[in-house]
Protein backbone atom coordinates (compact mmCIF):
# COMPACT_ATOMS: atom_id res chain seq x y z
CA UNK A 1 0.00 0.00 0.00
CA UNK A 2 1.31 3.40 -0.99
CA UNK A 3 0.61 5.60 2.03
CA UNK A 4 1.58 8.80 0.23
CA UNK A 5 -1.28 8.66 -2.26
CA UNK A 6 -4.44 6.59 -1.68
CA UNK A 7 -6.78 6.07 -4.60
CA UNK A 8 -10.44 6.95 -4.11
CA UNK A 9 -11.63 3.35 -4.39
CA UNK A 10 -9.46 2.27 -1.44
CA UNK A 11 -10.88 5.03 0.77
CA UNK A 12 -14.46 4.36 -0.37
CA UNK A 13 -14.09 0.64 0.44
CA UNK A 14 -12.64 1.42 3.87
CA UNK A 15 -15.55 3.76 4.66
CA UNK A 16 -18.15 1.30 3.28
CA UNK A 17 -16.76 -1.51 5.46
CA UNK A 18 -16.98 0.63 8.59
CA UNK A 19 -19.98 0.83 10.87
CA UNK A 20 -18.45 1.06 14.35
CA UNK A 21 -15.51 3.34 15.05
CA UNK A 22 -13.46 3.51 18.26
CA UNK A 23 -12.16 7.09 18.35
CA UNK A 24 -8.99 7.16 20.45
CA UNK A 25 -8.21 10.63 21.78
CA UNK A 26 -11.81 11.85 21.45
CA UNK A 27 -12.25 15.21 23.16
CA UNK A 28 -15.25 16.47 25.10
CA UNK A 29 -14.33 20.01 24.05
CA UNK A 30 -16.73 21.00 21.26
CA UNK A 31 -14.18 23.01 19.24
CA UNK A 32 -11.55 20.23 18.99
CA UNK A 33 -11.12 18.47 15.62
CA UNK A 34 -12.08 15.07 17.11
CA UNK A 35 -15.42 16.48 18.29
CA UNK A 36 -16.06 17.82 14.76
CA UNK A 37 -15.28 14.44 13.26
CA UNK A 38 -17.36 12.50 15.80
CA UNK A 39 -20.41 14.71 15.40
CA UNK A 40 -20.22 14.62 11.60
CA UNK A 41 -19.75 10.86 11.38
CA UNK A 42 -22.60 10.23 13.80
CA UNK A 43 -24.83 12.26 11.48
CA UNK A 44 -23.73 10.02 8.60
CA UNK A 45 -24.83 6.91 10.50
CA UNK A 46 -21.54 5.71 11.97
CA UNK A 47 -21.49 4.45 15.57
CA UNK A 48 -18.64 6.26 17.32
CA UNK A 49 -17.29 4.99 20.64
CA UNK A 50 -15.02 7.59 22.27
CA UNK A 51 -11.84 6.34 23.97
CA UNK A 52 -9.97 8.67 26.32
CA UNK A 53 -8.68 7.59 29.76
CA UNK A 54 -8.66 11.21 30.96
CA UNK A 55 -12.46 11.53 30.70
CA UNK A 56 -13.45 7.85 30.97
CA UNK A 57 -17.01 7.36 32.21
CA UNK A 58 -18.17 10.78 31.01
CA UNK A 59 -20.39 11.23 27.94
CA UNK A 60 -19.48 12.79 24.58
CA UNK A 61 -22.33 13.33 22.10
CA UNK A 62 -24.46 10.71 23.85
CA UNK A 63 -21.76 8.01 24.03
CA UNK A 64 -19.95 6.87 27.19
CA UNK A 65 -16.20 7.41 27.03
CA UNK A 66 -14.09 4.24 27.40
CA UNK A 67 -10.67 4.16 29.10
CA UNK A 68 -9.11 1.93 26.43
CA UNK A 69 -9.92 -0.33 23.51
CA UNK A 70 -9.98 -3.45 25.72
CA UNK A 71 -13.00 -2.11 27.59
CA UNK A 72 -15.18 -2.11 24.49
CA UNK A 73 -17.24 -5.30 24.43
CA UNK A 74 -18.58 -5.10 20.87
CA UNK A 75 -16.90 -5.59 17.48
CA UNK A 76 -14.91 -2.58 16.26
CA UNK A 77 -14.49 -2.01 12.53
CA UNK A 78 -12.16 0.98 12.66
CA UNK A 79 -9.82 2.47 15.24
CA UNK A 80 -9.49 6.20 14.47
CA UNK A 81 -6.41 7.70 16.17
CA UNK A 82 -6.45 11.32 17.35
CA UNK A 83 -3.05 11.05 19.10
CA UNK A 84 0.51 11.83 18.02
CA UNK A 85 2.49 9.61 15.66
CA UNK A 86 4.49 7.97 18.44
CA UNK A 87 1.43 7.11 20.54
CA UNK A 88 -0.19 5.71 17.38
CA UNK A 89 2.26 2.79 17.59
CA UNK A 90 0.92 1.15 20.76
CA UNK A 91 -2.68 2.08 19.88
CA UNK A 92 -2.22 0.24 16.57
CA UNK A 93 -0.98 -2.82 18.48
CA UNK A 94 -4.09 -2.63 20.68
CA UNK A 95 -6.26 -2.34 17.56
CA UNK A 96 -4.70 -5.53 16.16
CA UNK A 97 -5.27 -7.27 19.52
CA UNK A 98 -8.98 -6.38 19.74
CA UNK A 99 -9.60 -7.55 16.16
CA UNK A 100 -10.27 -4.22 14.43
CA UNK A 101 -10.31 -4.35 10.62
CA UNK A 102 -9.03 -0.85 9.92
CA UNK A 103 -6.54 1.52 11.56
CA UNK A 104 -7.01 5.16 10.61
CA UNK A 105 -4.50 7.84 11.73
CA UNK A 106 -5.67 11.45 11.60
CA UNK A 107 -4.18 14.43 9.74
CA UNK A 108 -0.57 14.88 10.83
CA UNK A 109 -0.38 11.37 12.34
CA UNK A 110 1.79 8.81 10.59
CA UNK A 111 3.63 5.76 11.92
CA UNK A 112 4.94 3.55 9.11
CA UNK A 113 6.27 0.82 11.42
CA UNK A 114 2.89 0.49 13.10
CA UNK A 115 1.18 0.50 9.69
CA UNK A 116 3.37 -2.41 8.58
CA UNK A 117 2.52 -4.40 11.71
CA UNK A 118 -1.18 -3.80 11.13
CA UNK A 119 -1.00 -4.73 7.45
CA UNK A 120 0.98 -7.87 8.25
CA UNK A 121 -1.88 -8.81 10.60
CA UNK A 122 -4.39 -8.32 7.76
CA UNK A 123 -5.73 -4.86 8.70
CA UNK A 124 -6.13 -1.97 6.29
CA UNK A 125 -4.42 1.29 7.19
CA UNK A 126 -5.00 4.95 6.31
CA UNK A 127 -2.61 7.61 7.65
CA UNK A 128 -2.49 11.41 7.70
CA UNK A 129 -6.12 11.75 6.60
CA UNK A 130 -9.42 12.58 8.28
CA UNK A 131 -12.40 10.24 7.69
CA UNK A 132 -14.78 13.21 7.98
CA UNK A 133 -12.95 15.09 5.25
CA UNK A 134 -12.62 12.00 3.03
CA UNK A 135 -16.29 11.13 3.41
CA UNK A 136 -17.36 14.69 2.65
CA UNK A 137 -14.98 14.91 -0.32
CA UNK A 138 -16.06 11.62 -1.89
CA UNK A 139 -19.80 12.23 -1.46
CA UNK A 140 -19.72 15.78 -2.81
CA UNK A 141 -20.26 17.77 0.37
CA UNK A 142 -16.80 19.33 0.35
CA UNK A 143 -17.42 20.50 -3.20
CA UNK A 144 -19.93 22.83 -1.55
CA UNK A 145 -16.96 24.70 -0.12
CA UNK A 146 -14.93 24.77 -3.32
CA UNK A 147 -12.85 21.65 -2.62
CA UNK A 148 -11.79 19.54 -5.60
CA UNK A 149 -13.45 16.12 -5.15
CA UNK A 150 -11.63 14.61 -8.19
CA UNK A 151 -14.94 12.90 -8.91
CA UNK A 152 -16.00 12.92 -12.58
CA UNK A 153 -19.30 11.16 -13.18
CA UNK A 154 -22.39 11.23 -15.37
CA UNK A 155 -24.42 9.52 -12.60
CA UNK A 156 -26.28 11.25 -9.79
CA UNK A 157 -24.16 11.25 -6.68
CA UNK A 158 -25.96 9.50 -3.85
CA UNK A 159 -25.47 11.06 -0.48
CA UNK A 160 -25.11 7.98 1.68
Amino acid sequence: MNHDDYNDKYIIDVLKDTKTVAMVGASANWNRPSFFAMKYMQQKGFRIIPVNPGVAGQEILGETVMADLDEIDEPIDMVDIFRNSEAAGSITDDAIKVGAKIVWMQLGVRNDDAAKRAEDAGLRVVMNRCPKIEYARLYGELSWHGINSHVITSKRRRLA
Binding site: N148, V151, I152, S154, R156
Partner: peptide
Protein backbone atom coordinates in the same frame (compact mmCIF):
# COMPACT_ATOMS: atom_id res chain seq x y z
CA UNK B 1 -12.79 16.46 -19.99
CA UNK B 2 -12.37 18.45 -16.78
CA UNK B 3 -13.48 21.63 -18.61
CA UNK B 4 -16.81 19.98 -19.42
CA UNK B 5 -17.40 17.78 -16.35
CA UNK B 6 -15.49 18.84 -13.23
CA UNK B 7 -17.75 20.19 -10.48
CA UNK B 8 -20.96 19.40 -12.33
CA UNK B 9 -22.22 15.84 -11.87
CA UNK B 10 -25.99 15.54 -12.48
CA UNK B 11 -28.02 17.45 -9.91
CA UNK B 12 -28.54 15.01 -7.00
Amino acid sequence: TLSVHAGTPPDP
